[in-house]
């Protein structure tokens, strides 16, 4: 590239033209994205700082192991890979929309934009499911000497260290509520009885039933985990959402021949930059929360 420039002997910086041969809108978009990269960077670095200040951090494979419709099957990272692919594919369709825009091919622009919007909405749907699953999940957690069933919220984290077998655990089981024990028995198939029937049994029987089960009871984990997870994926989701809105506006403008009349589809290009940035951020969110 640079060689082409110098052979032309263009005085890029001498004024009277863009030194980058880029219209100001795109320059602004790029620098805005750079600025936004610092917003996300600051979030992710804060997350890292807190994580580095803790002795223990939950293993993402243990936290993110559910898949819609797969019940309690242990499928680490499966769902998030689906989300990642949705976003990559939607990025590809956006590239194609921008490319069609360069050619002034209105029909293709509209088609690929529509697919991008579908991808964006699909991603948001996945995120909604994942959040819902995490918040409403019931995980046996050792809290204040008894077992409680809690989900992942901003104020509590059920993914601490595993509680080793021992008198402490036994005492905790004895202290726990009837319905917690019943759920545990049910979950570990330690009895044929239904939940309602288990509720009628004496507590000690339930504890006995659990004596042979392999319990995955954890302590409370670092609270900041949830805050950062919801905060950062939420902020990213907000970007996806606004990207979808922008793309919808672009689609409407395309259909109303606004760009045809202007003679160029540069707006699509800028919307495309934004959308790819959303994908780019996800690559790093994926890295920080799910992989390492």
């Amino acid at each position: 590239m640079a060689t082409t420039v110098s052979t032309h002997q263009t005085k890029w910086w001498s004024g009277g033209k863009s030194p980058f041969n880029v219209e100001y809108g795109k320059v602004m978009m790029w620098y805005f994205l750079m600025s936004d990269a610092f917003t996300f960077g600051a979030f992710l670095i804060s997350y890292g700082t807190i994580r580095f200040s803790q002795n223990f951090w939950p293993d993402p494979n243990v936290v993110f192991n559910a898949f819609p419709g797969a019940g309690h099957a242990n499928l680490p990272l499966a769902f998030v890979s689906v989300m990642t692919f949705i976003l990559i594919i939607s990025s590809v369709t956006m590239v194609l929309a921008v490319h069609a825009g360069h050619k002034g091919d209105k029909a293709s622009v509209a088609k690929w934009l529509a697919w991008t919007i579908v991808g964006g909405i699909a991603f948001l749907g996945c995120q909604a499911w994942e959040w819902h699953h995490l918040i409403t999940g019931e995980h046996a957690t050792l809290i204040d000497g008894q077992i409680q069933m809690v989900g992942q919220t901003t104020t509590i984290n059920p993914w601490g260290q595993l509680v080793a077998a021992g008198p402490e655990l036994t005492a905790a089981l004895n202290n726990s509520d009837q319905h917690v024990l019943a759920s545990l028995v049910h979950e570990h198939h330690a009895s044929q009885l239904g939940h309602a029937e288990l509720m009628k049994l004496p507590k000690q029987d339930l504890v006995n039933m659990l004596s042979n089960a392999e319990l995955h009871i954890r302590e409370k984990g670092p609270v900041a985990f949830g805050g950062y997870f919801y905060g950062i994926t939420g902020f990213h989701g907000f970007h996806v959402f606004s990207g979808v809105i922008i793309n919808i506006v672009m689609l409407i403008m395309t259909q109303k021949n606004v760009f045809e009349r202007r003679g160029h589809y540069l707006m699509i290009e800028k919307a495309g930059l934004y959308w790819h940035f959303v994908d780019l951020v996800w690559v790093f969110v994926f890295l920080c929360f799910y992989l390492i």
Partner: peptide, 12 residues
């Protein structure tokens, strides 16, 4: 972007 893109002719 104004400083980069909008300089008049000769204003390097």
């Amino acid at each position: 972007s104004t400083i980069l893109n909008m300089r008049t002719k000769g204003m390097s």
